[in-house]
């Protein structure tokens, strides 16, 4: 198939970006979206132009590196990661708009690459269970009901790609934070730090340039792992409980 691509080009954070047009022929429907960009980049390099920068690594939907706004939808028309999107989802003659994630919390590095280190800082604030190496009891010491383990797993599948933030009209990171609060809060091992965890993580999220959550649900609709909005309810529930219990973050 033949395609027209309109791609966001921005050489560096300091320089204003703009959309640039490219035409691509001989695109196979079995190509992944990123392979299509690889082909374009090979042409650009041979033509002496700067190839388009985009983050990617595992290309099997699990590392969370890739993420593009495709025709205004985070990760494009299928509910999956950009690397798992294939060109059979498009038609001959299509014009496709490709942009980076856009949020105050994710400054552009170059072209389609953004800085998502705010996510690491949210985890660093409290998204863990304190269990230094060597301190663990036998794995069977504490049985975990299967329903809790399964629900914790569902939340734990978050890949940290940032599509939730990109899709949110407020640029909120609430689904990301809520997924971790839910994962750890459902497990018996996560109980001792449950109150302080939610308070600290939400505080860090607010300290980054993310917007507030108004329960719109775009986040969950584009999430490649289908993280549910229920996690946000759980976060709000835990946060309220923690604040009532005066679980103020230790500074």
């Amino acid at each position: 198939m033949q395609l027209t691509l309109r791609v966001w080009r921005q050489p560096s954070p300091q320089v204003k970006g703009k959309m640039a047009n490219y035409h691509l022929t001989d695109v196979s429907e079995d190509m992944s979206f990123l392979e299509m960009l690889d082909v374009l980049n090979e042409q650009l390099i041979l033509d002496g132009e700067d190839p388009i920068a985009f983050d990617h690594d595992c290309r099997e939907g699990i590392c969370g590196s890739c993420g593009l706004m495709i025709n205004g939808i985070a990760h494009g028309p299928e509910q999956t990661t950009t690397c798992q999107l294939h060109m059979r989802s498009f038609s001959d003659g299509d014009t496709i708009d490709i942009e980076p994630w856009r949020s105050g919390g994710f400054p552009v590095v170059k072209d389609l690459v953004v800085d998502r280190s705010a996510f690491d800082r949210i985890i660093s604030a409290g998204g863990f269970i304190s269990a230094p190496t060597g301190t663990a009891p036998d794995a069977h010491a504490t049985p975990v009901p299967k329903v809790d383990a399964d629900a914790a797993f569902d939340a734990a599948t978050c890949i940290g790609c940032g599509a939730c933030v990109a899709a949110c009209p407020n640029g909120s990171a609430m689904l990301f934070t809520a997924a971790k609060v839910t994962h750890l809060g459902l497990l018996p091992q996560g109980q001792p730090e449950r109150d302080s965890r939610v308070v600290k993580m939400v505080a860090q999220q607010d300290a980054e340039d993310f917007g507030g959550c108004t329960n719109i649900g775009e986040c969950s609709a584009v999430c490649p792992k289908g993280i549910s909005m229920e996690t946000i309810s759980r976060l709000n529930h835990d946060l309220l409980g923690a604040l009532r219990a005066n679980a103020v973050p230790a500074s």
Binding site: A131, V144, P145, A149, H183, Q189
Partner: peptide
């Protein structure tokens, strides 16, 4: 064997059976 203990303590959600064991 210690690895499994360590990971469970960290909150790694391994598959479990209905009795709650791994």
């Amino acid at each position: 064997t210690q690895i499994i203990d360590q990971c469970v303590a960290q909150g790694v959600p391994f598959a479990r059976e209905y009795g709650g064991l791994l």
